[in-house]
Structures are given as C-alpha cells and as structure tokens.
Write a protein that binds this DNA or RNA. Structure first.
Lengths: 119, 119
DNA sequence: TCCATATTTCAATTATTGTTGAAATATGGA
DNA sequence: TCCATATTTCAACAATAATTGAAATATGGA
C-alpha cells in the first residue's frame, strides 16, 4: 500500500459520520445496507450521506450494488486489511511485530501483500 | 476506545506530513528522534512540524521528552493497538475475526482492552 | 553575560471539507 | 403514463485545517 492510498483510507475513516457509516456497514455484514437504511441508522441527511458514501467508495472501503430501486452498500475488508498492515509494518524497527490475521468470514478479506515497500 | 478517540487518532494519521512523521518515529523505535531530525528526515518546516507533532501528541500517538535542548519524540503503540482493535472489532458480524496480536518489542504496546463497547 | 542553536507560538493567508436544501435522475407499481 | 419512492447532484455557505514567516522562549556553551 502506498502512502497516499493509506492517507485516503485514513481520511475516509477520520470523520464521525463516515466512521459511523462504515461501522454500521461492518455490522451489517456481507448483505449490506440500502442508503436509506444507513440514513435511518445514522441520522445523516441523504445528500450528506451520499457525499460520504462516495468518499468511502473512493477510498475503496465500501462498494455498492443496485437492487431494484435501492442502492445497497457493503463494507469490504480488503483495504482495511492493507491499511492495518501498512500501519503496523515497521513496528519495532521493521519487525512488523504488530501482526494480524485476516478476516475469515468475508470474501473481500483475503490477506493483501504484507511485503510492501517500507519507507 | 470511543468513536471520538478513534476519529482523533485517524485524523492525526490521515495527513501526508503526519503519516510521514509517524512512520519515521516508528522506524526510529524507542530511542525516538529530535524535532530537528524529523524536520530533516521529512523536509517539513519547523513551525509546520511543531503544529503536526502537537496533533500527533494530542492523539496520543507520540510522546516527547526533553533531553538537553532537544525535544525527542517517540511513537508509542498503545493507541495504535487500540485503534486497530476498534477498527477490526465487529468485523464479520461481531466476531472480531480481524484479530491481531500485540507488539512484543515495545513497552507501550501492551494489549489494550478488546472488550470495548460495540456501537 | 552573550550568542548560537532548538523549538514553539502566533497571526495571516489559502485550501479543503462538511452541511444544507432544492432540483435532477431513475426505478417500480398503480 | 403518472406518481411515489430512493438516491444523487449541485451550488452556496460555514467551518476546519495546513502552510508560511516572523517573533518569542529556552537551553547550553564560549
């Protein structure tokens, strides 16, 4: 994972509304939630929600699918995994001792390359 | 870890300069780096650096000690660990399957309570 | 004490981000 | 087709955040 990619993902999560949205989607699991349901669950106004969902999508932390007239959003863990790896790599002088195991319950959560370029 | 605490830590890292600073400090290990050295290493102007170091300190991601006329900054992993736990908790419907093991090489890296309040 | 070095503080400027409400688009059902 | 529902887009505004340069503070050595 590149520095900029990490910044984008971190920035996407570093906002109360988006963190709430993301966590709601994580909780909802692979089935995901329709935009309207997310709005209900979080109390975020539709237009604002749409703005934030776009940012989370851009950061690749969520994806969406159309289902009749609903747009269903789903959290996916691939980038989260990469992000965690990036943040923990080089821990304790490059020994990556903050290791983590991949999520086993979600198809998106396959481990992503942990042999990234250290700075 | 509370939602707001997480947002503060994420926001602290969600910025190119600060992520670079933080990673430099992670790389430097427990010995840390003097502010001037960080400025050299990252190319960030002293006043700007000071601003960012304050933000990282506020987020509790780094701490500082005085050593003669230098101020030495050190990354510490406690909040990073909490943050990782927070981000991965509830993964796959509350089973925290994105588990992680604590860093063993740094005194700050003791595992912090993983039984936090899910949203 | 005086000076050089190390770092922080402050104010000003610029850039970015988040929220709101109204209008636009798109889908499905009556 | 027409209407209600679901979501997104857009423009305007407000709030925050980042950078700069100059000045302030603090420490140690000559």
């Amino acid at each position: 994972m590149e520095n900029k990619t990490a910044v984008i993902a971190l920035a996407a999560l570093a906002q109360e509304s988006r963190l709430a949205i993301y966590r709601a989607l994580v909780q909802a699991g692979p089935e995901g939630l329709a935009a309207g349901k997310i709005s209900e669950a979080t109390g975020i106004a539709p237009s604002s929600l749409s703005f934030h969902l776009k940012e989370l999508t851009y950061a690749n932390l969520v994806s969406s699918r159309n289902e009749s007239r609903f747009v269903i959003y789903t959290a996916h863990f691939a980038v989260m995994n990469e992000l965690l790896g990036f943040l923990t790599e080089n821990c304790c002088n490059g020994n990556a001792c903050l290791s983590l195991s991949a999520c086993s319950g979600n198809p998106d959560s396959l481990p992503s390359n942990p042999t990234d370029t250290p700075s």
